[in-house]
């Protein structure tokens, strides 16, 4: 299927203290099945908004354009329906859920998604086995399963917990919103490995980042430059290196 993720002319705004503020201003993007794409762009270009709009956060108002995923109108679906369809967003700032046991949260999520996908739910034993295998893979301590979701987690632990969720939920399309921010080099390697090991002809990802560094570990098929709520340039992985050296100026000028 060529139309795996297809975004056309997407416009979205947010209510900023009573005044609507346009953030996405006619964004076009296609990510075919099996490919990993990166989005880079200066602060305020709308990268995180794009990830939230795709995942279904409802304080953004979509004012134009379309987004389809696996042929379905993504924007018409609830966040949980998008998750069941195979979409996953790794949060830039993972949310803390006080008192909610991490293992319980993971199992509830996994089984909700499995139920929606028509798969059998995992019982406690099967789930524990699955989760233990993943935590080992991600060098996470079992202690993190017993704690409340993200509460008291270090920045690196939170990001690893995101990757853990991603691996357990087995998405076909993952959005990683600045997953590399706040990670030391070892954690970065582990997180990148977590993404790379999902690589398959059936898995795509959109990696949003500020830094070339992450793309040394997760080598994208294509890189898109985003500014002012639009994709202003697309190309091969080399673009990232150019950006790292020369900044966004040349692309911004070219687009102006």
């Amino acid at each position: 299927m060529s139309d795996f993720l297809k975004i056309q002319g997407l416009q979205a705004r947010i209510d900023a203290d009573g005044t609507p503020k346009d953030i996405l201003k006619g964004l076009d993007l296609e990510v075919p099945k099996g490919e990993i794409h990166a989005i880079m762009g200066p602060n305020g270009s709308g990268k995180s908004t794009l990830s939230y709009v795709l995942a279904g956060r409802d304080d953004y108002e979509v004012t134009g354009g379309s987004a389809t995923f696996k042929g379905q109108d993504l924007l018409a679906l609830d966040p949980e329906e998008r998750a069941a369809l195979g979409l996953f967003l790794a949060f830039q700032s993972p949310v803390e859920l006080p008192g909610v046991n991490n293992a319980n949260f993971l199992r509830t999520a996994v089984n909700a998604v499995r139920r929606a996908r028509g798969e059998a739910e995992l019982d406690a034993v099967a789930f524990l086995k699955a989760v233990r295998a993943e935590t080992k893979h991600l060098s996470m301590s079992d202690d993190m399963l017993k704690r409340a979701v993200n509460v008291g987690f270090s920045g690196g632990e939170k990001k690893r917990n995101e990757v853990l969720q991603m691996r357990l939920l087995q998405p076909s399309f993952a959005i990683l919103d600045e997953t590399d921010s706040g990670l030391d080099i070892d954690a970065l390697r582990i997180v990148a490995e977590g993404v790379n090991s999902l690589r398959s002809p059936n898995f795509s990802a959109l990696v949003i980042t500020h830094h070339q560094r992450l793309l040394d570990y997760i080598v994208p098929d294509r890189v898109h430059v985003m500014a002012h709520g639009r994709i202003i340039h697309s190309g091969g992985p080399d673009i990232a290196k150019t950006l790292e050296k020369q900044g966004y100026t040349q692309f911004l000028e070219a687009a102006a």
Binding site: D58, D78, E80, G99, V100, F105, A112, L169
Partner: peptide
């Protein structure tokens, strides 16, 4: 939103959060 993006229905999400509380 965090819970729902992980596939939980809004009801399940509220339940989980209240239970945690």
């Amino acid at each position: 939103f965090y819970c729902r993006s992980r596939g939980l229905s809004e009801e399940d999400a509220v339940g989980l959060i209240v239970n945690g509380f």
